[in-house]
Simulated assay, not measured.
Amino acid sequence: MVTEVPDRAVLPATSRWRAMAGWKKASLALVLLFAVLCAGLAVLGFGLKHRYESRVQREDILGQGAGPRDERRWDSGPLNLLLLGSDSRDGEPDQALYPGERSDTIMLVHINAKREAATVVSIPRDSYVDVPASGQSWPGGPNKINAAFAFGGAALTAETVARLAGVPLDGVLVANFAAVRKLVDAVDGVNVCLPYTVKSSDTGVTWPAGCHDLDGKAADDLMRQRHGVPGGDFGRIHDQQLVVRALAERVSTTGLLTKPARLDRVLTTAAESLIVDRDLDLGDLAFALRRLRPEAVQFVTVPFSDANLQTPAGSAVRLDEARAPELFAALREDRMAQWLVANPQTPPAN
């Protein structure tokens, strides 16, 4: 049993590392992977539950609409987690997602029934979909999917995604992209290889096609770009995925898992900026991920047919009426391995 430690305290390196079971160590790289996907803040799978869970903010996100927790899915079935992220800048009044703000990163993470592979499905934030009604703030109807957060917070976003994909949600995590800078710096930077040239509209920095060593500030800058990257918002999604992979590689090659004091700083940064659904048990999720390795995580974007759809809500993205339902069906039926073979992913085009 792991002994709970006082707030802000750090266990001696040897005792904390020995306290972790092997499967908890194996889960850690994926935890950091999720951390960057959700703005660097998903500490959910780490084995020292008592130390970090007290730092995580809890909210009733899934609520009654999700129904009771499905124990059969947690025991032996596939799992679906929703990761929501904001690209709010440091210094802005909100340090998480609040009513009135839109979610700029929406990712559905599917973990297969064998718990040996995961697929991270990015949903373009401007996808024009049906957003359910939310009290007096929104009567319901078609709108951009990221508007769901402005109308009803994470709860309405979760309901919108669940209806769109037709899958049950087993947990929701909400975070802010601002923390990615601290996480990347905590591992002494990452090496990101770009298949195209990206120019920052914020700082004027240009990253030619090729590999680049990035500190936290540069990685944060890269992942925010929409206008100076091929594919616009789809290019930004791809760049976020590249940084995720780079961080996973950095963790595995620098031996961060064997440096508990340094690792503690990374996970503390993540935990203190994370909002998790009230009913998501972090220990159960860690156990479910015990066989999953970073190299078994695949990234896809929901297929679309029109990236400049004109709507009453402004220019939006029309999801492909044939291929998007096929992807969602593969999620429901736990057939993502076959779908990925039939639908190889390529970098965004200009």
Rank of each mutant, 00 (worst) to 15 (best):
V5Y: 03
P6W: 04
W17Q: 07
W17D: 11
R18I: 00
M20E: 02
W23I: 03
K24A: 07
K25H: 13
L30T: 13
F34D: 00
C38Q: 15
L44I: 01
L44M: 06
F46V: 11
L48Y: 01
L48G: 03
Y52H: 13
L62C: 10
Q64A: 14
A66P: 00
R69G: 07
W74D: 15
D75S: 15
S76A: 15
S76G: 13
P78A: 15
L83R: 01
L83D: 03
L84G: 05
D87E: 04
S88A: 07
P93F: 02
D94P: 06
A96K: 05
E101W: 01
T105W: 00
I106Q: 05
I106P: 02
V109K: 03
I111G: 14
K114Q: 06
K114M: 09
A118H: 12
V120R: 07
V121S: 10
V121N: 10
D126A: 11
Y128C: 14
Y128K: 03
V129N: 00
D130Q: 07
Q136D: 14
G141F: 10
A148S: 08
A150W: 10
A162S: 06
L164Y: 12
L164F: 10
L164M: 13
G166I: 14
G166F: 15
V167T: 04
V174G: 00
V174L: 03
N176P: 15
N176K: 01
A178F: 03
L183G: 13
V184M: 07
V187H: 01
V190L: 03
V190S: 00
N191G: 12
P195I: 05
K199G: 01
S201V: 13
W207C: 15
G210C: 15
G216T: 08
M223L: 11
G228S: 12
G235D: 14
G235Q: 15
H238V: 09
H238L: 02
D239T: 12
Q240E: 14
L242H: 04
V243Q: 06
V244P: 03
L247I: 07
L247F: 03
S252T: 10
S252F: 00
T253V: 13
L256G: 05
A261S: 13
D264S: 13
L267H: 09
T269S: 14
A270Y: 11
S273H: 06
L274K: 04
D279E: 12
D281P: 05
D281Q: 06
D284M: 11
L285Y: 02
L285G: 02
L289C: 08
L292C: 11
E295G: 07
S305F: 11
S305L: 05
E321Y: 02
A322N: 08
F328M: 03
L331C: 09
R335V: 12
R335M: 14
A337N: 09
Q338D: 14
V341L: 14
A342T: 06
P344Y: 01
Q345S: 13
P347W: 02
P348F: 14
P348Q: 05
